[in-house]
């Protein structure tokens, strides 16, 4: 296949993803209306609605990330670095996932100095945090901790849960920007991590650039995702 054809196909993919995202938006809206018009009769039905919403939202996040990665590849994704308060960005992600936490009976704790401010693209970094949060919600038992602090003049954002932790294969490849670990058969594309790595990398200061780390243990004994921005 020539380079031209590959380009062409990724364009087709991108516009098709765009289309899917629009349809999904309609679907989410309609779902919302259905829930409003016919409130769940019992807990079982409430759980079913929650699952519908959660899975649709997950697809939505993935599609948004796919489009963002496509734009990064084409150098058409603007990065707007500005000063932001971490508490604002983190609480925004918590608020976004309010429903999810309620239905999964998760407690989400934010540990961050009110006055901590840093320089980054809030939409991209917010997207990374949201995505990791949505994933953690899946694997954690009852608690997730979001923490932001400055260490050695770098911003460190961690998302820790009390689940079983990341599998060893993922820990090994966590720092590399490659498609390693992608496993179509297992439904494990690691798009979220790929996106996170790219976003981290787009944040630079002098010679330093951002990065991510995966580890197990941490404050809650489960998986720990760390985003470090210079």
């Amino acid at each position: 296949m020539s380079a031209y054809e590959i380009d062409d196909f990724s364009l087709v993919l991108a516009s098709s993803v765009h289309d899917m995202k629009n349809s999904l938006g309609m679907l989410l809206d309609t779902l919302q209306q259905v829930v409003e018009a016919t409130p769940p009769r019992d807990d079982g039905q409430a759980r079913q609605f929650a699952t519908l919403q959660y899975e649709a939202a997950r697809i939505n996040t993935e599609l948004v990330q796919l489009l963002a990665v496509y734009r990064m590849q084409n150098r058409s994704l603007p990065v707007q670095v500005d000063q932001h308060f971490l508490i604002d960005v983190l609480e925004e992600q918590v608020a976004r996932n309010d429903m999810l936490c309620q239905t999964r009976k998760l407690s989400l704790e934010v540990d961050c100095d009110e006055d901590l401010a840093w320089y980054f693209d809030a939409e991209l970094v917010g997207g990374v945090v949201n995505n990791i949060l949505v994933n953690s919600a899946r694997y954690s038992r009852e608690k997730i901790l979001l923490r932001a602090l400055v260490e050695q003049q770098q911003l460190v954002i961690t998302i820790a849960d009390d689940g079983a932790g990341y599998p060893p294969a993922m820990l090994e490849n966590s720092g590399q920007d490659s498609a390693a670990g992608v496993n179509f058969a297992a439904g494990n594309t690691h798009l979220g991590l790929f996106f996170a790595r790219r976003v981290a990398n787009m944040h630079r200061r002098g010679e330093m650039s951002g990065r991510i780390q995966l580890s197990n243990g941490g404050p809650l004994g489960g998986g720990v995702f760390t985003l470090i921005l210079p």
Binding site: D29, D98, M99
Partner: peptide, 11 residues
Amino acid sequence: KPINGKSLQQR
């Protein structure tokens, strides 16, 4: 979008 009450109020 989608917007929920909590995000909207916080914003």
